[in-house]
């Protein structure tokens, strides 16, 4: 991510140290992860120690300090999805992508995460790919759905 773009984001928040979280969220949503250089730049511009930024960036699950794949797959492991076979869906995705939850593949195609509830239990088991919800999944449907992503 370009330093100019980071500076723009910081300026949008008037360069206030109290807006640190918003600035990090903006960088995260634009870049899909937080590179070390970006954190260093933010630290410098806001005059906030890097240790503090590191603490915040590792505290919230919304932030990633490693590159994310083009497609982010979230598999719901909530109670309703669990009893309807979320574990089998997870197994299918793990097998199809070769990833464990929290990992990203080498060609940056998929990132896999488990989540505890997506809030649409009636559709369980649910997976969410790049913000699109796929409901009432079966292992076969899951494998089909994953094939549509490039």
């Amino acid at each position: 991510m370009e330093n100019d773009r980071i500076d723009q984001i910081i300026d949008k928040h008037h360069g206030e140290a109290s807006s640190l979280l918003q600035i990090l969220l903006d960088i995260q949503s634009e870049n899909s992860w937080l590179p070390k250089e970006a954190l260093g730049r933010v630290s410098q511009k806001l005059d906030v120690p890097l240790t503090r930024i590191q603490h915040i960036a590792t505290f919230y699950k919304a932030f990633s300090l490693v590159p994310k794949g083009r497609h982010e797959v979230h598999i719901c492991m909530g109670t309703a999805c669990h009893v309807r076979g979320a574990t089998r869906i997870l197994d299918t995705v793990e097998e199809a992508t070769g990833l464990k939850p929290g990992e990203t593949d080498l060609d940056l195609k998929f990132s896999l995460e488990t989540v505890n509830c997506l809030g649409c239990c009636a559709l369980g088991p649910v997976i969410n790919v790049d913000g699109k919800v796929h409901g009432k999944m079966s292992p076969v449907k899951t494998a089909e759905a994953l094939k549509t992503y490039e």
């Binding site: 240790t51 503090r52 603490h55 590792t58 505290f59």
Partner: peptide, 9 residues
């Protein structure tokens, strides 16, 4: 110096 900090939670 801020050389050391907490990470994770």
């Amino acid at each position: 110096k801020n050389a050391i900090g907490f990470v994770d939670r």
